[in-house]
């Protein structure tokens, strides 16, 4: 099993509902976030293109944060989800320096925190909070190892990209373009 998230940038309107849902669900302290919206404008004026992306931890296959962690607090669990054990984390910041996606932050309690793909909800058979609230239904979540899953079908039939593939991390959040 390998969990992955697929996000349709053509349907996303950048409403930030996913951000607020995550902050509420995971009790994210004020001023921080585990996911965020990026507005990327590209092209040459007047032929500009706007892309909206809901971004978060990419739960990479070769996660540099897990490699650099000196205590083993950052680890990978079943389904390829990268998690942080708060009371093994010393708050050294090595994982923050090694994440090309800047997906981690230092929680006011001291440990490092990030997106968990809502691991606690998956255990109950629910979708991650961000996916479940998306008003345009542009976010999909599932098992890419299963060739018949919704996410596998989307990746088979649509054009997609990942972020900073040159960082060599093999990210598992895919953007349909």
């Amino acid at each position: 099993m390998r969990y992955a998230m697929v996000i349709d940038t053509l349907k996303c309107v950048g409403c930030s509902d996913c951000v607020v849902a995550c902050q509420t669900e995971n009790n994210v302290p004020h001023g921080f976030c585990r996911d965020w919206i990026t507005e990327a404008v590209s092209g040459t004026y007047p032929n500009l293109e706007l892309e909206l992306r809901s971004e978060r931890c990419n739960h990479c296959d070769t996660a540099p944060c897990v490699r650099c962690c000196p205590t083993g607090a950052s680890h990978v669990v079943e389904g390829g989800i990268v998690l942080v054990t708060a009371d093994e984390c010393i708050g050294c910041g090595a994982c923050i320096q090694s994440c090309p996606y800047d997906a981690r932050y230092q929680h006011p309690d001291g440990h490092v925190d990030k997106c968990t793909f809502c691991h606690h909800r998956l255990e109950k058979g629910q979708l991650p909070a961000c996916v479940s609230v998306c008003p345009t239904k542009c976010m999909y979540f599932g098992d890419v190892d299963n060739p018949n899953s919704e996410v596998s079908n989307l990746l088979k039939n649509r054009k997609y990209k990942t972020l900073a593939p040159e960082a060599g991390t093999n990210p598992h959040v895919f953007y349909l373009i």
Partner: peptide, 8 residues
């Protein structure tokens, strides 16, 4: 691409 701004 000659211009790229990322505002988010």
């Amino acid at each position: 691409q000659e211009e790229l701004f990322t505002s988010g």
